[in-house]
Amino acid sequence: TPHRRQIKELLLRQHRPEKRCLPGATTPWTPQTKAETRLVQELSRLSGYPAAQIHPSHHLELDLGIDSLMKMELLLLLETLSPQKGAATALPVEQLLQKVHTVQDLLALLHPSPDPKPRSRSPEKQAFDAFQYLTTRNSLFYQCATRLFHFLLRHTYQHYFRLQCRGLEHLPSTRPYIIAANHTSHLDSGAIITALGKEARHLYILGARDYFFNHPWKGWFFNTFLHVLPFDRHENFLQGVRVSKEALSQGHSLLIYPEGTRSITGALQPFKRGLGFLACEARVPIVPAYIHGSYEALPKGAVFPKRRKITVTFGPPVSIDAFCARRGKMPNHLLYQEVIENVRRRIEELRDHHLRAE
């Protein structure tokens, strides 16, 4: 409607402050290479300031208003612009985020100097590689063990929790997708796996690295039997994006909880923009899902599950193509916010429809 367009234009003007002048640009400076020009253009697009005003001395957060998610976009761009592909982001992302504070820091990453003596990483840092959890295990023991586990899981959900599933016809059959579901219980992932049936063989679940992979045996169990992939919620976000994109490119689908953690009340929590960022990067549809009953069966903090009926409802997929077509025409963080608000509304509609039907 015209009223909504006016509001959107007002918000865009607020995020693109053309009348303000950036501080600190006392020394004239112009980009020297095409890569530097492309980087400055991206900084201009993200910050809303004219490219001519951006100077190497400007602070990314204090001067340009670049938040952590925008920094991730810039690091992904640096990977493609650097003459040595991947060299710009060879360090762990948590170290990069600690190093990158100014435009000059980004320019330094764009032209990394050769290091004849690369710094050795601690055994713990060397040992953990999220990509290793994408490896397919074809041994007879693995196949027998996973089949037995999934049989027990299916039997538990169908008979103890009386699982019901609706909307399976909405799942895309010709391409990978992201399932975005509400999260109130440790029972949620098992409910989705059981609801998908044989399709669950092609599903990976994004799980918090600091919770599911804080011990080797724990990471092995959840990756082997539930296909959980480590996703760092606090520091190594970029590696999680890479692993997720690689899983999707291999034809697997992903289960993501956009709230980031379990709700302690059972109500929907605010969604993280990372879902919109990942969906736009991978260009795959998002299938909204609503899980009912898992909170009553096993809320956060409980140890033993109660016998409660669990229902999983899938909604029509949210196409990401229209959002991707608008990248670069508006601040990306606003675009990602639109994506998650759209998905959240779909999940709320599934919830309301379920509650009315009961």
Rank of each mutant, 00 (worst) to 15 (best):
H234S: 07
L355N: 14
S189E: 13
W29F: 08
R308C: 09
R283L: 15
L134S: 14
H215G: 00
F222A: 01
R283Y: 05
A325N: 09
L229E: 01
V40P: 02
L91P: 03
R154D: 14
R5M: 09
L96I: 08
E259F: 14
L226E: 05
I310F: 05
V228M: 11
I54D: 03
T184D: 12
Y290K: 06
V287L: 01
S294A: 08
R16V: 00
T311R: 00
R137P: 04
P123I: 01
Y295G: 04
T311F: 00
Y211G: 13
T136C: 11
S139A: 06
H111P: 07
C324K: 11
K198G: 01
E199L: 14
Y204A: 00
N138T: 14
F131K: 07
P56C: 03
K218P: 11
F151M: 10
F314N: 01
Y257I: 14
L254M: 08
Q239Y: 08
P172N: 01
L78P: 11
S263Q: 13
G167D: 05
T313L: 01
T156K: 13
S47T: 09
H234E: 15
R162P: 00
P331C: 04
R154E: 13
S249L: 11
A191C: 10
D105R: 01
E246V: 12
H170P: 00
A180I: 15
V287K: 03
I192S: 04
Y336V: 06
F304H: 04
S173Y: 00
P172R: 01
K300P: 00
G260K: 09
E9C: 10
L110T: 14
F212M: 10
Y257S: 03
T265A: 13
D188L: 10
R326E: 14
